[in-house]
Design a protein around this nucleic acid. Structure first.
Lengths: 119, 119
DNA sequence: CCGGATCCTCTGCGATACTG
DNA sequence: CAGTATCGCAGAGGATCCGG
C-alpha cells in the first residue's frame, strides 16, 4: 500500500482520535445542524483546539459542511454531515456489525443501548 | 462512545500502523499460510519488533492464526487469516469503494493496479 | 462563543543489536 | 529464522491563554 492507495488515504485521517466520534455525533438525530459548543459538550473531554482541527479536516475532506450565523453575538458555528459524510456512516455500521458478530464481550453495544453510536 | 463501544474497541486496534497492511498481505492469494519473513519482506520497512507486536495483537483478537514448524531448523512460523479476519476484509473493501466513489484524486487505486490492496 | 497560538507531555514507533 | 531488549525521538494530542 502506497501513499496514493485509497484505503491508506482514507484510513489515515478517519483513524485520528475523535474523528469517528464527531461523525457519529453529527449523525445522531436526523442530520440537523449542530453547534460547535453542542458537539464539544457531547464529546466529553475534547479540547477546543482538537475539535476545531478535526472539524476543519473533515470539512476539507468534504464529509461535513459548516455555516456561521453572523447576525448573533457571540457568533454561532454549526456543522452538518454532507452526503459524502452520511455515506461513510455505513462503514462505521459495518464495523459495529462485524464486532458484534465475532466478538462477544462488548457488553454495551450488545444491549443495544450504546447511546453514542445510535447505529 | 465509551470504552465498551464496539466501534471504539475495534477501531482502536485496527487503526494502528501496519495492522491493515498485515491483514491485506495475508489476504493476498487464496489464504495460504505465510511466513514471518515473507510478510516482513512484503511490508517493506516494518521492523521485526513492530511485526511481532502486530501479529501478536491480531492473534489475540482472533483475526489470524499461527503455526510453528518445529521439525525444521531454523524454526518456521506461519500465519493465516481466520474466518473472523477474512470477514474483516469486506470492511476494508468498503473503505476502498467509498473512497473511489467520493474522492477522485486517487490515481493508483482508480487504475485498478493498486497491487497492495488486491481488493 | 468560536477557535487560533503556545507550550508541554507522553507514547507509538523506529533503529539497532542481540539470542534461542 | 523468528523474534526480544534497549534506547531515543518525532509528532500527536492535552492544558492553558488569548483574541475577534
Amino acid at each position: 500500500m502506497n501513499k496514493n492507495c485509497s484505503v491508506y488515504k482514507t484510513a489515515s485521517f478517519i483513524c485520528k482520535k475523535w474523528t469517528m466520534l464527531i461523525l457519529l455525533e453529527l449523525y445522531r438525530g436526523k442530520g440537523e445542524w449542530k453547534r460547535y459548543s453542542h458537539i464539544k459538550t457531547k464529546l466529553n473531554g475534547i479540547t477546543p483546539k482538537m475539535l476545531s482541527a478535526r472539524l476543519k479536516e473533515l470539512k476539507g475532506e468534504g464529509m461535513i459542511k459548516k455555516r456561521v450565523d453572523v447576525n448573533t453575538f457571540p457568533i454561532r458555528s454549526e456543522y452538518c454531515l454532507t452526503k459524502t459524510g452520511k455515506d461513510f456512516i455505513k462503514i462505521i455500521k459495518s464495523i459495529k456489525e462485524w464486532t458484534l458478530k465475532w466478538k462477544t464481550k462488548n457488553t454495551d453495544c450488545e444491549k443495544n443501548d450504546c447511546e453514542m453510536c445510535e447505529l
